[in-house]
Design a protein around this nucleic acid. Structure first.
Lengths: 264, 264
DNA sequence: TAGTGGTCTAGACCACTTC
DNA sequence: AAGTGGTCTAGACCACTAC
């Protein structure tokens, strides 16, 4: 589909005439969308630039504003553009990337298969963010945060499958009151007690050799390898709410993620 | 928002009157959508049942078909319903699961930050799937697959950041011809040479202590911990195309994933 | 033949941003 | 004040399904 220079000739045919002649053709908004995608890919509208306003697109392609809008909506779904009322439409990507995505319905799924786990608190204390902790908690350097250390057990088992250190922003310290509830997750307490929604979790995975203390707690031998997982819990405006540092011996834990192709 | 029994009283106010009175209120289609979601959650429309037709919903809530349709579109985006022209709208899920999802635009992003890496092939051979390999490749037990072992280097560096074993379905053995291209990724060769698209990647992460051979290849000490990552590449119909077994020393590699809340 | 979702038009008011 | 995307109405034809 090629943009028309003028739309003057169009209305003569009246509604539906085009469709009637071209049976089973793709709908108009689809053809307009394809044309726009092509223009973006060819660089007619480079990334960072603005797309023409809806009415102009409608005129160019000789369709109503609604149809132009449906076409533009398609581009939005493909992640090619961003729209803002009062401003306009910005091209954000030149390629209709068919993405892969992984989905979980709850943050819990990052951690356990079995929902049923027990948390045993080893200790709580206020810590000044400095030294190695400041490496992890850069933006909070110098502040005093609440640190909780714990072991997590599968339901019914005596052998913990993880050692966890959770560090919490002082504003949310009231979670102490409920932290000892079995199975309590710090991020969920923050959500429940403060109405602050976790909007992002950043997870970093690496590994380490257990030191003597860690090994003893987990029932392993010192020097054994274990997964080391950092999780950064972010709230609104990427505000860092909490960080957890988790150690998982490999025989009891495996992280599994499935990435699926998202169709255009 | 509660469904109205009759819509007769509505038009009296004329267009926009409601909005004018209730400044900054949520748009109508949103309120209709929320009402429908509530009805689905409450079981008024159970999973498997049909939602009323568009015109009926429009009438119930005293809005135009367009507005009802926008509301219904919202439910579709949330994965609550499936629609079929000529049939109707079926409820497919009762929970407007506000999911967390992680996205990558390319499978490569699972593996490298730097796109620029070199692959050095250590060996290729046909192997019968049995023993420990059969644990990983259960569905292919007894078959003979192509095994390729390699080291992956960051561009310009002499120190590999991973040891990789790739096992490939015999049907795709022709990738041997191009496997030695620097930077070649097995899954990409399969996509390019056979037109088979990777539709899913399942990733399992655990860790191990390096044995002498692995340690030597990676320039580490035996017994040092390392990440162990299995990746299963699936094609159409969940057909297992290839498996890779990757070993990453922790000092040179960290797996990072960001999970973002998908807003309703 | 009647009903469903899918597409489309023409025209309208709104909140917001930029000038 | 002008222009943008966001929302909304009323009315229409279409392809498809089910009866």
């Amino acid at each position: 589909m090629t943009p028309r220079k003028t739309a003057a000739a169009a209305p003569a045919t009246g509604p539906r005439s085009v469709r009637s002649l071209a049976a089973h053709a793709a709908p108009r908004y689809m053809r307009v969308a394809d044309a726009l995608i092509a223009e973006i890919e060819q660089g007619t509208y480079p990334v960072g630039e603005m797309l023409p306003p809806e009415l102009e697109i409608a005129e160019q392609y000789g369709v109503s504003r609604y149809t132009a809008r449906e076409a533009i909506r398609k581009l939005t779904e493909l992640g090619l553009i961003t729209r803002r009322a009062g401003i306009g439409t910005t091209v954000t990507s030149a390629t209709a990337q068919s993405n892969y995505s992984a989905r979980i319905s709850d943050i819990d799924e990052l951690i356990h298969y079995a929902k049923e786990t027990r948390l045993k608190i080893l200790g709580e204390e206020w810590v000044k963010v400095e030294g190695p902790l400041a490496e992890v908690l850069k933006p909070a350097k110098g502040q005093t945060w609440l640190k909780v250390t714990a072991l997590r057990y599968p339901q019914g088992s005596r052998k913990p499958f993880s050692h966890t250190t959770m560090v919490v922003q002082p504003a949310y310290a009231r979670i102490r009151e409920r932290i000892r509830e079995s199975g309590a997750a710090v991020y969920r307490l923050i959500e429940e007690m403060y109405g602050e929604r976790i909007s992002e979790v950043k997870q970093e995975i690496t590994c380490l050799a257990l030191d003597k203390e860690q090994a003893t707690l987990l029932g392993e031998k010192a020097g054994n390898p274990a997964l080391l997982v950092y999780r950064y819990y972010l709230g609104k405006d990427s505000n860092l709410l909490s960080v957890s540092i988790n150690i998982y011996p490999p025989d009891r834990f495996k992280l599994v993620t499935s990435w699926r192709l998202d169709w255009k």
